[in-house]
Computed example of a mutant assay.
Amino acid sequence: MAEAPIKFGILGCANIARKLSRAIRLSPNSELYAIGSRSVERAAKFAKDNGFPDSAKVYGSYDAVLDDPEVDAVYMPLPTSLHVKWAVLAAGKKKHLLLEKPVALNVAELDLILEACESAGVQIMDATMWMHHPRTAKMEEFLFDSSRFGELKFVHSSFSFAADKNFLENDIRVKPDLDALGALGDAGWYCIRAILWAADYRLPKSVVSLGGTVLNSAGVIIACGASMEWDDGKTATFHCSFTANMTMDATVVGTNGVLRVNDFVIPYEENRASFLSAAEKPGIDENLQEWEPVPAEETVVATESPQEALMVSEFSRLVGNIKFRGASPEKRWPELSRKTQVVLDAVKASIDNSDQVIEC
C-alpha cells in the first residue's frame, strides 16, 4: 500500500508561494492541505487561484495552520524578519519546515531555528530550488572528476535583474523592517550557494566586499559583490543586483577543465537544461586568430518535473522517512543553509565595515 502523502500548510500568500503551490500539486508524495494568511478572505482567494483542492483548509492566521494536527509540514515564504519567530513556533508544533531563502537575517537567528528543529526532531530544508534539478547532479559529475576538471581554482557567479520602479519602492525585499538584507539576501544567497557548491562546501578563509555597494534611501542593499579566498589559494567572486540586466551565471574554472552555466537559478526551459564544459585544454592557432579546439561541449539534461517539484518531492521523502519509518532528520540540508548564511553574514559585515576583510 502506498504511503499517505505529506500534508503541507503554507504560511502566507507571497508571490513565490504560487510557484510552490504548483510544485506541491505536481509532487507525487505531497498534498496541498492548508493555507493561512492574516485574513481568511485573502487565504481563500489564494487557494482558489492556485489550484487548492476543495477540501483544503483555509485559515485566517498562521497560528491556525500550525495548530492543525493534520498538517505535517509547512512551507514558509514570509519576510525574512519573521522567519525566526514562525519557524521556531512551527518546530515547536512538530511541523517539518521548508523555509524560503534567505533563511534568516543572520546566523544567530538561524541557530535558534536549527536548535528548535533539532530539539523537535523535524526536518528543515531551505528552498534553493536549483540544487534539486538533475542538471546539478550531472554538473557535479564533471566538477568532481579529477581527470577531466582537475583542481578547483576559481568560481564566479552572478544573479541580477532590472527591477521596475514599483519593486524598488514597494517590494518587501527593499524594506528594512521586512527583508533588511535586500539583494544580498535575495539574489546573493544563490550566488554564495553556487560558490560553496563548486567548492564542495568548504568555507572560505576570508571574505571581502568589492566596493561599489548600492543602497536605497532606507539603507537596504540593492546591488553588491564580494570576493572570497581559501587557504589553498582558490578564489571566488560574485555580483548580485536589483538594477542590472538579467543574469544567472556561474563559471567554475579548474586546472584541467571549465564549466559554464547561464541559467543556474531558473533554467531557460522548465523541462530541459544544459551546461557547457571543456575538458581539453584549448590553445590559439599559429596565426593567433582562433581557438583550437573550441571549448564548448554542451550537455543537455531533461526532466519530467520542474526543479521546484523535485525539491518538494525530496523534502516530502525525508519527512515520510521520519513519519512512517522512524528515521532521523537529514542533517545535510541544515548544514548547507548554515554555511551559506555564515558567508552571507561575512559579506554583510564587510559592507558594513567599509569593505574590510572578514575572516570566516
Results as ranks from 00 to 15, higher is better:
W86M: 00
G150N: 03
K94T: 05
K165P: 08
M129L: 15
A91S: 10
E141Y: 08
A87W: 03
L114Y: 15
L89R: 11
T128C: 04
L143H: 01
L143E: 01
S146C: 09
I113K: 06
H156A: 10
P102G: 03
H156M: 10
H96Y: 08
F154M: 14
T128A: 07
K95E: 03
S158R: 10
L97T: 01
S147Q: 13
M139P: 00
L143A: 03
V84K: 15
E151A: 13
W86K: 01
V122P: 07
I113D: 08
S157R: 00
C117D: 01
F161N: 15
H133N: 12
A91K: 01
L105C: 14
N106W: 05
K153N: 05
R135S: 02
A137Q: 09
A120G: 06
A87V: 09
V107L: 08
A108V: 12
L168A: 04
E118N: 14
A104E: 08
S160H: 09
K85C: 08
S119E: 11
K95P: 05
N166P: 02
G150C: 02
L112R: 15
A90N: 03
I124H: 08
D111N: 05
A104H: 06
R135I: 00
A108K: 12
T128M: 03
K138Y: 01
E109A: 13
V88Y: 01
F142H: 00
L114K: 08
M129E: 13
L152M: 06
L112G: 15
H156Q: 10
A104Q: 08
L114H: 11
I113T: 07
F144W: 15
N166K: 13
V155Y: 12
K153R: 13
V103I: 04
L168G: 04
L99H: 06
S158A: 12
A137K: 14
M139I: 00
V107T: 14
A116T: 02
N166D: 13
F154C: 11
K94D: 05
F142A: 00
V122R: 04
F167M: 05
C117R: 04
L143V: 03
K138F: 01
F161R: 14
S119F: 00
E109K: 13
F159C: 15
D126Y: 06
A116V: 06
A127T: 15
F149H: 03
R135Q: 03
K93F: 10
A90G: 01
N106G: 08
I124V: 10
D164Q: 05
A116D: 05
F144I: 06
E109C: 11
F154Q: 15
F161K: 12
K93Q: 09
E169S: 11
V155D: 05
S160E: 03
S158E: 14
D145K: 11
E115T: 13
S146T: 11
A162E: 14
A162S: 13
E118G: 14
R148Q: 13
M129G: 12
L110G: 04
H96G: 03
M125Q: 15
L105Y: 14
S119I: 01
M131A: 09
D111G: 07
E118S: 14
E118C: 12
E141C: 07
E140A: 15
A162Q: 13
E115C: 10
G92I: 00
F159T: 00
G150W: 02
D164H: 05
F144H: 06
V155M: 13
P102N: 02
D126G: 10
P102V: 02
L89D: 09
E141R: 01
D111P: 03
A87K: 07
